[in-house]
Design a protein around this nucleic acid. Structure first.
Length: 565
RNA sequence: GCACUCGUAGCUCAAUGGAUAGAGCGUCGGCCUCCGAAGCCGAAGGUUGUGGGUUCAACCCCCGCCGAGUGCACCA
């Protein structure tokens, strides 16, 4: 952005200071009365060249003020250079920014980006906390695809291990009907009962472990049971993912790696990376106690999630040659992934870019979330509650509602509110689950963005004319609200890029909220349809760009916006 | 005990090392005989946990302390 300004400033500085390597970055000012763009280069250079910041800034001001695109340039504060662009230049920047923000064509010459998220467990419904990783993962998938990357959206189903062994024990002891007729909720009940009983009868835990080992060894009866349970779980997940606008390219379970672990174990042993631990287990010892020991095989020889993750890492690298692997998990798993990556290095594997996309845990005011104790808050119930609340709000509006499809709108608002509640917060923070806040329909919320979009579309419908930035001509002066909205629209590509670079979807969510706020202020302060012809064209163009940006931006966050509501 | 994350307005949260730390909710007061009031405008509310340090400039980087959370081998 502001390429010509950067070049000119750079030329000026290099002429004055021949030995200097410098790039001049123009940024959006922190306050609204500091022009269209600003640079702190004078402050940064002062010490290096032995001149005062103000002196350098003044030098830039003098050199920039006669540029054709510059309406006004001034020195401010300790050494800021603030530039106000001419109207045509500003509109040109706007058009360029909107082009920059369009979806990029997919890059064919690079490996895919693998993004793993959601990670549901077998025989359990998705819990409310699953919404965090699921929403963040899908947003990142959308944002990376938008930027032109090939993405493999990867769901990793927890369909294996001790938890399954426990379920099979519970089923054989207390199951009351054939597994085919069980719902996920029935299976969850059995799982919960297992842990209740296990508190009295410690032998149950051993039975569970034994069953998981038998499955691993290929026990046919267990295998048949397992397949049915997996099918039941996947079926129930499908509907929920559809409501959340979440979709995966792959949903391989842990079981997929059962025949891929032995070679890894052999490799680790051969390379001396895996050594014997307590009770006949196999572990990794990290040099200098960088991390605590990493358990690879249980004492009884059974594999663990670490074993599967190693096999999975290898499988992903060999099969897809990805440029990056991102795995979204809550912070409790941080150490595990650090150990995993370090182990891969010790094995001599050449890893692609890797990041454990960490997010905080969901905290509840009243009760803790543990599947084992059975007091699970199901995601499905949260969604239903959200939609129900939206329905109530819609019903209260009565005649003021302009939609023909109140049910669809309620779904859009309720689910959107929940997803936005997740994505508008820095993912690293713990998330306090509060119905009122999470399902808020006022203020900083999905319905606010949806309302703003519907409002903008409404104006455009009433305009009954072709609207475009290119069609804006003859504007001699803008109101402060016009200029403010232009400046905010200009920031869209930057917001997208920041969300991608930091893999923080909330940067995009916060931007969209800012845009909606600025549009609403503009809408309230200025006439659009009644404005004088050239201004009307400008304001309609800004309205169109706002509506399009809101729709595109929320879509990246897996949130829909209506044309009427 | 060791490691990691987090402490910002009454509550929930923002703020690439830059100018006067911003929103929402809540509280108080305004705005529909103009394009959608699910909105807008204004007020009150802050020693950014605390003590040092680095820097022209620190909520942000470094160190100590206090507080909260999480992890640390047979769960994932």
């Amino acid at each position: 952005m502001f390429a010509s300004l950067s070049q000119q400033a750079k030329r000026l500085l290099q002429a004055e200071f021949p030995d200097l390597e410098v790039d001049v970055a123009w940024e959006r000012p922190s306050a609204r009365d500091h022009g269209d763009c600003t640079t702190t280069v004078a402050l940064q250079l002062a010490k290096k060249v032995g001149r005062s910041p103000k002196e350098i800034a003044q030098f830039l001001v003098d050199g920039l003020q006669n540029m054709p695109d510059v309406e006004n340039v001034e020195l401010a504060g300790p050494g800021y250079v603030n530039v106000r662009l001419t109207l045509p230049a500003l509109l040109k920047e706007l058009e360029a920014a909107m082009n920059e923000a369009k979806p990029k064509e997919s890059k064919k010459d690079e490996g895919p980006v693998i993004i793993e998220y959601s990670q549901p467990n077998i025989a359990k419904p998705l819990g409310a906390h699953h919404i965090i990783g699921t929403a963040i993962g899908q947003a990142l998938v959308n944002i990376y695809r938008h930027a032109g990357h090939t993405v493999i959206a990867w769901n990793y189903l927890g369909d294996y291990g001790t938890q399954f062994g426990k379920l099979s024990v519970a089923f054989s002891k207390w199951g009351t009907k054939p597994v085919e007729q069980c719902s996920v909720d029935d299976l969850l009940d059995l799982y919960v009962k297992f842990h209740e009983e296990a508190e009295q009868d410690k032998a149950l835990e051993d039975l569970g472990r034994a069953a998981s080992l038998r499955l691993e060894e290929g026990d046919e009866e267990l295998r048949a049971f397992w397949k049915k349970v997996v099918a039941i779980t996947k079926e129930s997940l499908g509907e929920l993912y559809r409501r959340l606008h979440v979709s995966f390219d792959l949903d391989l379970g842990e079981s997929f790696y059962e025949d891929k672990m032995v070679p890894v174990i052999e490799e680790g042993k051969a390379k001396g990376v895996f050594v014997e631990g307590e009770k006949g287990s196999l572990i990794v010892q990290f040099p200098n106690d960088l991390y605590p020991p990493y358990l690879i095989l249980r004492g009884d020889g059974a594999t663990l999630y670490s074993t599967r993750d190693l096999a999975q890492m290898k499988y992903r690298m060999e099969t897809y040659h990805p440029q990056a692997i991102f795995i979204a998990t809550d912070i409790a798993q941080k150490l595990h992934f650090e150990q995993l990556i370090e182990t891969c290095r010790m094995l001599g594997w050449e890893l692609p870019e890797f990041e454990n996309i960490l997010f905080g845990r969901m905290r509840f005011v009243e009760k803790s979330m543990s599947t084992r104790k059975g007091n699970i808050l199901k995601l499905e119930h949260v969604l239903d509650e959200a939609v129900e609340r939206a329905q109530k709000v819609i019903a209260e509006r009565g005649d003021a509602i302009q939609t023909d499809e109140p049910a669809a709108l309620a779904e859009m608002m309720g689910v959107g509110a929940l997803v936005y509640g997740i994505l508008s917060q820095n993912r690293k923070m713990d998330l306090v689950f509060d119905w009122e806040k999470m399902l808020s329909f006022d203020g900083n919320s999905a319905p606010y963005l949806q309302y703003t979009h519907a409002r903008a579309r409404s104006v455009l419908r009433k305009a009954e004319q072709e609207v475009s930035v290119q069609g804006v001509t003859g504007v001699t002066a803008m109101a402060p609200h016009d200029r403010l909205l232009v400046n905010t629209l200009l920031q869209y590509p930057t917001a997208l890029q920041e969300a991608l670079d930091t893999r923080m979807p909330h940067k995009l969510a916060n931007y969209l909220y800012q845009l909606a706020q600025d549009f609403n202020a503009f809408y309230n302060a200025e006439s659009i349809l009644q404005a004088e012809e050239s201004l009307r064209k400008l304001r309609l163009a800004l309205t169109l760009l706002t509506a399009d940006t809101l729709r595109a931006g929320t879509a990246l966050l897996a949130i829909q916006v209506p044309d009427r509501m």
